[in-house]
Amino acid sequence: MNLKEKAHWVWLETLGIHRRAPETRLASSLSSIEIFVALYYGGVLRINPNNPRDENRDRCIISKGHGSICMYPILADLGFFPLEELKHVCESGSFLGGIPDPVIPGYETVNGSLGHGLGVGTGMAFGLKRKGSDRSVFVVAGDGELHEGANWEAIMFAAQHKLDNLHLIVDQNNISMLGYTDDIVSHGDLSSRLSAFGWDCLEVQGHDVLAVQSVLHQLKSVSGGKPKALIARTLKGRGVPGLENASLSHIINPKPELIDSLLEKFK
């Protein structure tokens, strides 16, 4: 499978998981698929599924916990845990919950509560620098969770300490739980804001997996003494009629028959 096919497979698998476990958040998991596919299959991250906390890995912090159910098929496919586990999401005894936790091989930190990943990832990037490691840290955050002020403490810190091993990828789907972020507390031109805080910032169409892959490689290769951000413009609920870019998509559960018809149509 090429990257596009892989992204499509992850989309189908994510729909399937939500069909079986409607407690999972579907819409925010659909906006980040190409970001994760580019990171994990596109040669961006150094990973070791046999030893998920291998010292030589790049650290990927999935800060938008709820919106990363699409990581379950990716991690299973890569061998972090058996594919069979995908059938048991949210079931008693499974380690794959409605919100991922670091009991899942491949997850680094606790992210059910939003706005923590960037700060902890910044501490890891700082620690890697100070111990002379050339490994990188990637943090995938939602634009909604950037409302949490602790993010901006970390953003200032990372610039101060020239953490060019730190990469923030913002899944900018423009929607948090109760509506469009522009109507709640707007981030304005997020790219300019991050630049003003001393970050190198790029933007990409977040559903063009090849473009995301290319720009991630570009970002990773730069070591100019600045932390780096990628604003990925995405659609919450992408590809699901009634869900895509709907202001309340976070809390809408599409009808099972709709999911079944999509799975049948696009498989």
Partner: peptide
């Protein structure tokens, strides 16, 4: 958060 990240390293 920074302290937690350093401890993880």
């Amino acid at each position: 958060n920074i302290s937690a990240g350093l401890a993880l390293e």
